[in-house]
Write a protein that binds this DNA or RNA. Structure first.
Lengths: 370, 370
DNA sequence: CTGTTAGCGCATTCAA
DNA sequence: TTGAATGCGCTAACAG
């Protein structure tokens, strides 16, 4: 309560900040608290006069509703939990990128994002879900039989996935990796190349049957068949030395390949070193095309590539997560219009999803030397 | 309420999830709700028997306290708002990196992190602060007369900064840029180099009197004086072409420099291109030392460098923000022990801060050719 | 068109 | 050592 000084204007004092509530606003406007609530929510017809009185009182008192009270009452937090993987010592630039973009996308739907690392395994997600700190979760880098998925399922907590592995029956979004690699091959062929290498995902990713790894291989095979080009698959490896050795063998083998399509980008610098060590200059002697690169990433700017559609995926996954929250609590029509560049997959899946079509970016693909 | 089926075990149903409250636990344990609360908070002595009964009931019902109710009651969210800058079209890898690390650090103090982008300017921060979605804020990339700082000040909202500009009177943490550049120069001299270039921050950063820019220049000057080495400052520029031109001039000037110390890393790939274009190979013809690089970043691995202490800064800023929340609500002693590698600055400042000392990383600095 | 009232789930004061 | 009662701020069901 205020004993002296003007009663209007937001309190500027620190710490002692008297909280102004809906009741204060009601008193000042000479109406009932519920009337203020209705003005705010718009869920009831209010006369012009009272509405203005209430608006004025809100301005004068600098009132803002308390999120915790709303949540307690409505059982909705308007918060999304974003679970980023945290493999100790292995930060991936992609994680931070998605964190930012998903946050932007969620805001577009009126949601905030609570960022969570996987540092304590499944504990954080369980805690957030059970304490109802968020209405739904977005999971990054889901693995086969991911314990986080189990937990969410057990708790009945709504969620959506960034990336897809054909396993979890949860809504998901992903780049169409098959189409992406196929596009890279076709465009490379269109530039005049007849013999090329495809550096696929690392062996352990294929063994784990990761979706992107398998679909990428499928795309290479399909495009090779379609174009009649000679596409040799070089399986990547998480050990940089193994990768360098394999690459060197492939690059020096006869007949010589004039292009290299790369899906396994984590070790790109090492890879380029290996290319240089083989005496090849890019793009003069060898054309390098990237698949799944980060948009605007320094160091890949000068190469033709198919970027990971981070923005589209973020938009889509936010939407999927929010749609999963409650059947009758949507902002609008569930999914009347698909996001641009996305379409429903023809592959079997019982969960909603957005498969995003690849797009070529960067400089044009150089023709082979002659 | 449950009419049929067993009454124990967490509800696995979706959507209809009956929420179990402290009352349910009390009923099942045959005690009063307040007793359950006391068992949870430990703020009162409870007999072994009742405590066990309550614990058992909690387990059986799968009870977990509702965050919104706690917050409404206690006026504490145990959430930190992390404001990441969002210059449209200019995502910086550092932002995502800090987001992850600050989240980890905050969890260490029992706090979660609400990630906010600056996409709607100051609006998001104001909204979060006023709706009491968080207890304090962490601001990244604060600028001179940053509107976010104004808002926080006006609302009396606790905050801490990642980086420092000598302006805002808020707690902050930063790498000691002066010491960092000085260290780079000294170590380069120790490797045998006598003439080197220092590519400082971009001109507009210096003009804006950014702390890191000014302190970096100070460090170069100081180390040059101390070692007697010839350190020529090359001001960087945000335009890559201008940067390339300046660098080329400096690299080809006589007497020739044998080392290049780089603080302006954003355009590193372009910079290395310019070096190569000048016919110089790294490190054979020219030693390149980085200051303020991201830890574990691909593409900088092969260069000697002083990494930005992301982990230490994140730990420190989380601590500072939490300490700023309330004077009587700490987890423990305010700041009895400083984090490793940090120390109070001798520079004037009335706000608490952690200046972090630089550390050399990466390969050893190569000697000059000859 | 607006006011009154009853909780949402929890922590805490006062009684016992 | 424990229980009963109150209210945090807000929304919605029920009156007028």
């Amino acid at each position: 309560m205020v004993w002296f000084g003007e009663a209007d204007g937001p309190t500027t004092g620190r710490g002692e900040a008297e909280m102004t509530t809906i009741k204060d606003v009601a008193a000042r406007a000479g109406v009932a608290p519920s009337t203020v609530s209705y003005v705010l929510s718009g869920s009831r017809k209010i006369s012009e006069d009272t509405r203005h009185a209430v608006q004025a009182a809100i301005e004068e008192l600098g009132y803002h509703p308390r999120a915790s009270a709303r949540t307690l009452r409505s059982a909705r937090t308007r918060v999304l939990a974003l679970a980023a993987p945290r493999v100790p010592g292995a930060y991936r630039a992609i994680d931070g990128r998605f964190a930012i973009d998903v946050t932007d996308a969620a805001r577009g739907h009126g949601y905030d994002v609570l960022l969570m690392t996987d540092s304590d395994g499944v504990g954080g997600l369980r805690r957030v879900a059970r304490s109802r700190l968020a209405d739904a979760a977005v999971l990054m880098a889901v693995e086969d039989r991911d314990p986080r998925v189990e937990v969410l399922h057990e708790l009945g907590f709504p969620a959506a996935l960034l990336g897809h592995d054909d396993h979890a029956a949860l809504p998901w979004t992903d780049l169409d990796w098959e189409a992406a690699v196929a596009l890279a091959v076709r465009e490379t062929v269109a530039a005049g190349h007849r013999r090329m290498l495809f550096l696929s995902s690392a062996e352990h990713e294929v063994a784990a049957r990761r979706g992107y790894a398998l679909h990428g291989l499928d795309g290479a095979r399909r495009a090779a068949a379609e174009t009649g080009a000679d596409v040799r698959v070089v399986p990547s490896h998480r050990d940089p030395d193994v990768l360098a050795r394999r690459l060197n063998e492939a690059l020096t083998a006869r007949p010589v390949a004039t292009a290299l399509i790369v899906q396994h980008l984590i070790l790109l610098p090492r890879l380029l070193d290996a290319v240089a060590a083989a005496g090849l200059r890019v793009p003069h002697d060898l054309t390098v095309v990237l698949v799944g690169s980060l948009p605007d990433e320094l160091g890949t700017r000068h190469l033709p590539r198919i970027d990971l559609p981070v923005a589209e995926m973020s938009t889509a996954v936010a939407r999927l997560a929010i749609d999963a929250i409650g059947s009758g609590r949507d902002d609008g029509p569930p999914s009347s219009q698909e996001p641009a560049g996305a379409r429903a997959s023809s592959r079997p899946s019982d969960a909603p999803h957005h498969l995003i079509q690849p797009q070529l970016a960067g400089p044009v693909i150089a023709p082979p030397p002659d």
